[in-house]
Design a binder for these strands. Structure first.
Length: 849
RNA sequence: GGGUGAUUAGCUCAGUUGGCUAGAGCGCCUGUUUUACACACAGGAUGUCGGGGGUUCGAGUCCCUCAUCACCCACCA
């Protein structure tokens, strides 16, 4: 079969992927006790993949394919995430478009509807993963709502329940009044907002005096339960312990001291509203203050407050209260002020800190165990800076609110006594809304788990903890790879939960990739409209090209703009491979049989084989250290600059098919993790090793180092010199070479071809331009031709002189001779000798004219 | 406020434990359709490695400092 002039990825990729799957190429082999295990961070089943996903797949798949070829028993487990809140938001807006709301349905109905909605969209995402070339075992595919995941989540919750690590408490939570659910701390985004700072006068009891407090939220005055000052603040010392009569409600509240208060902000006195501010809440806990809720979950003024404020929105209440206070002459002043406001990361509604009954996980003991493991460096982080960032996060961690008031997610397996709100029981029969136990009726909690509570258990859940064969073999995972934005949400929680449940770290290495930014360096975002969809790119340039384009020049943890030129570079490389294949194919026929033990006969054979061995070793060392870009760079430049530009070119005069095919076969192996589709396409077309996928073949061994010699390097240097002569004198110049050098004499044909010589012959030489890259080789130029070359020689001479001066200065430095490592000094001396020799040769050339 | 990273050729970026003449791709200039490849081939130009200081025989690399940018964490009422 003839190959087209250019590689057309669309023609090959889908078929190759299907062949891999049909042939079981990505299955665990059980052939080795060494393993490599990795799981795909499950993408949202309901959404399309973006370039960041493609980068994730690229990085993970390179490692998976490389390790598979190394003979390690390899699993790459794919999955999809129900993405609780994310998907819920999409579905709820779909409902709204249809003129319906969540209140038109029961939670059970909603759950079923979203299930179908996701199921019908999920295939898109899965097909996209396949287009990206992911070498995953699809039989192990897991969805975060699969029964085994639900079971594990329930078991974990039960264990925490029994260990006293989970509690139900009325705590201050971040609450989105639009979506009607609470959030964890890290789901709130803060932004600067221009606002006001109101200075309010609070009358002291039995006195004409006031204490002035500054606030950005005057409406919360209705829920104040104290005024706080710094204990060291002299101007308020006498007031500590006094009582304030809260304006409007006339409630009496204490003035107390707490180091949290900063004397130099505002007036140095703070109103304390525990039910609606996280710092105030903490302070109230310390001082045992009552907590009075005045805003409800709809963002409406509610509770035990004066009737005129009931039912007002927060902003209406703010206006009215300021108005009322001004009438009472209790507003001292108003300043413009820019403060940080928390917003819902989805709908940008202002987050209300509200007291709410939620399930919490006590994080301190769990985090301590994780910190302990991290501080022992049990997990390698790439980049390493992420290790300390993680430890810092774990040290400051707060209790985790794991309940969400939405329908879409894993139900919390807890039931509450209908007659006793403090009587909760654990029960996994979450398909029932009501249980009767010992004559008591229990109602199921309608909340679901935070998505991260289930995805945080991904590693051991996927591997069928505790009894699964997979768990025994593949845990801890070899590598966890993901984006930096979910280091805390996901990676840290996996570490915490993995250690808690299994007693062992969940993975040995963490690789964090940076963002794929837009080409101008800004963040890609749907609302800005600068998102690049990888799928059209894959269709246009090929999956391999996109993969290569994403990893070139990328290092762990560093954000970088998307650059189409890198994709083009990837495509060009794929096409280069393709054309090397075409060339080799033209030199072989049906009778050709591949030999894994080639027979080197020429200097170029030995040269290319020893280089290949080095490259195989280099790439594998770099990949073992997750240096993807450098690894690709190494095989790229060997393939292009050494193999194609020198070895193939010299093959045109001295063909050794056994070495040629051997090298290319091994290049394909090394290239495979970076360019799986085209390497497999060529492998199949060449049909040298019948019945075996490249994907399941083995990584080249380092051999042929013993055959290295420098003879071909001399030919390369000589060729480069002659080409330069020719380029300097003009391409039409006829160059005739005469050699009195035995090595060169054997390579005259090759040299003629590579250097575009008119003639090359053995002879005594001695006239014309003496070349310096090899001994006793001349170009028979006339005196007038050489004249045109003299300037170039003079420049070369200046370069040589500069280098020689540099080296001599170094060798005259006593400290250098004494303190630098001996081998460097020797190298310097050798360099000096070489350059001096070059200078002499140049002088001879110049003298000869 | 705290932290992390970045600043290297016109552009996008590499450059592990300090080691000599700092690299890649694209772009640019000159030439070429030469037995696979113009998604190519050959040759060439381009960098006071952000500024300043220090350690060292030697600094893009280590330390200090300043500047600019990005991100993360906390959040001051």
């Amino acid at each position: 079969m003839n190959l087209d002039k250019n590689y057309d990825p669309v023609k090959y990729e889908p078929k190759i992927y299907q062949n891999w799957i049909d042939g079981g190429a990505f299955k665990s082999t059980n052939k080795s006790s060494e393993y490599f295990s990795i799981v795909l961070p499950p993408p949202n089943a309901n959404a399309s993949l973006h370039l960041g996903h493609n980068l994730t797949v690229a990085v993970e798949d390179i490692s998976a394919r490389y390790n598979r070829m190394q003979g390690r028993d390899t699993v790459f487990i794919p999955g999809a995430d129900h993405a609780g809140f994310e998907t819920w938001v999409v579905y709820e807006s779909k409902l709204n478009k249809e003129g319906k709301t969540r209140f038109d349905f029961t939670n059970k109905q909603l759950y079923d509807q979203v299930w179908d909605f996701v199921a019908s969209n999920q295939q898109t995402m899965l097909n996209q993963l396949k287009k990206m070339g992911i070498s995953a075992d699809w039989d192990r595919f897991t969805y975060t709502l699969d029964q085994k995941v639900v079971n594990q989540v329930h078991n974990t919750f039960k264990k925490m329940w029994q260990d006293g690590l989970v509690y139900r408490g009325e705590r201050l939570v971040n609450y989105c009044t639009f979506h009607g659910t609470s959030f964890s701390d890290i789901e709130v985004v803060y932004e600067n907002q221009a606002g006001k700072l109101w200075y309010l006068k609070y009358p002291l009891k039995d006195s004409q005096d006031f204490i002035v407090v500054a606030t950005t939220r005057p409406e919360t005055i209705l829920g104040d339960t104290a005024v706080a000052v710094n204990p060291k603040d002299k101007k308020y010392l006498s007031l500590i312990g006094k009582t304030v009569v809260l304006p409007i409600t006339n409630r009496e509240i204490p003035i107390l001291s707490d180091p949290m208060v900063e004397s130099d902000f505002g007036t140095g006195a703070v109103k304390i509203t525990p039910a609606h501010d996280i710092n105030d809440y903490d302070l109230a806990e310390r001082h045992n203050l009552p907590m009075i809720s005045v805003i409800n979950k709809q963002g409406i003024m509610d509770g035990d407050i004066p009737v005129q404020y009931l039912g007002l929105s927060v902003s209406e209440a703010r206006e009215k209260i300021i108005n009322d206070l001004e009438k009472l002459n209790l507003v001292e002043k108003i300043e413009d002020y820019s403060n940080r406001v928390g917003y819902c990361y989805k709908c940008h509604t202002v987050i209300q800190p509200l007291l709410s009954k939620q399930w919490f996980v006590k994080m301190k003991p769990l985090a301590d165990a994780a910190i302990n493991q991290l501080e022992q460096s049990r997990i390698n982080f790439y980049p390493s800076s992420k290790l300390n960032q993680s430890i810092e996060y774990l040290k400051n961690i707060r209790d985790w609110n794991i309940s969400r008031q939405i329908a879409w997610g894993i139900p919390i397996p807890a039931f509450q006594n209908k007659l006793d709100e403090n009587d909760w029981i654990f029960d996994e029969r979450v398909n029932q809304d009501e249980l009767t136990i010992n004559g008591k009726t229990y109602l199921r909690d309608q909340d679901v788990f935070d998505t991260w509570f289930s995805s945080g258990q991904w590693p051991y859940t996927l591997l069928d903890y505790p009894d699964g064969e997979s768990f025994k073999k593949f845990y801890p995972l070899s590598l966890m790879e993901t984006g930096g934005e979910i280091l805390y949400q996901w990676v840290c929680r996996m570490i915490i939960l993995g250690i808690y449940i299994t007693g062992e770290i969940p993975f040995k290495n963490v690789y964090i990739h940076g963002y794929v930014l837009a080409d101008d360096g800004s963040k890609m975002s749907k609302s800005v409209g600068n998102v690049v969809d990888p799928i059209p790119l894959i269709d246009k340039y090929g999956s391999d090209a996109v993969r290569i384009g994403l990893i070139i020049g990328r290092t762990a943890g560093v954000n970088r703009g998307f650059d189409i030129r890198k994709i083009e570079e990837g495509r060009n490389f794929a096409n280069k491979l393709w054309n090397i294949a075409r060339f080799i194919k033209s030199k072989t026929d049906e009778t050709f049989s591949y030999d894994d033990n080639p027979n080197p006969t020429s200097p170029q054979d030995r040269w290319v084989l020893s280089k290949l061995g080095e490259i195989s070793k280099t790439v594998s060392e770099l990949l073992e250290n997750y240096r993807y870009s450098e690894a690709f760079d190494a095989i790229y430049s060997f393939t292009w600059n050494d193999f194609a530009d020198w070895y193939i070119e010299s093959s045109k005069t001295q063909l050794n098919v056994s070495v040629l095919s051997y090298c290319f076969s091994n290049i394909l192996r090394i290239v495979h993790p970076f360019a799986p589709f085209i390497s497999e396409a060529i492998w199949g077309n060449l049909n040298w090793q019948k019945g075996e996928f490249l994907a399941t073949s083995s990584w080249p061994e380092f051999k042929f180092s013993e055959v290295a010699d420098n003879d071909f390097q001399t030919i390369i240097n000589l060729t480069t010199e002659i080409r330069f002569v020719k380029a300097t004198l003009g391409a039409e110049t006829k160059l005739n070479l005469e050699s009195n050098n035995p090595l060169i004499n054997k390579q005259l044909d090759t040299l003629t071809s590579l250097s575009k010589l008119s003639t090359a012959k053995e002879g005594a030489g001695g006239s014309g331009l003496k070349l310096h890259s090899a001994d006793n080789v001349w170009i028979n130029l006339s005196a007038s031709e050489i004249k045109n070359f003299i300037n170039s020689l003079k420049k070369q001479k200046q370069d040589q002189l500069a280098t020689i001066r540099n080296l001599e200065a170094r060798l005259q430095n006593k400290s250098y001779l004494e303190k630098a490592p001996a081998h460097l000094v020797v190298e310097t001396k050798n360099d000096l000798a070489t350059h001096k020799f070059n200078l002499e040769e140049l002088d001879k050339q110049l003298d000869s004219f």
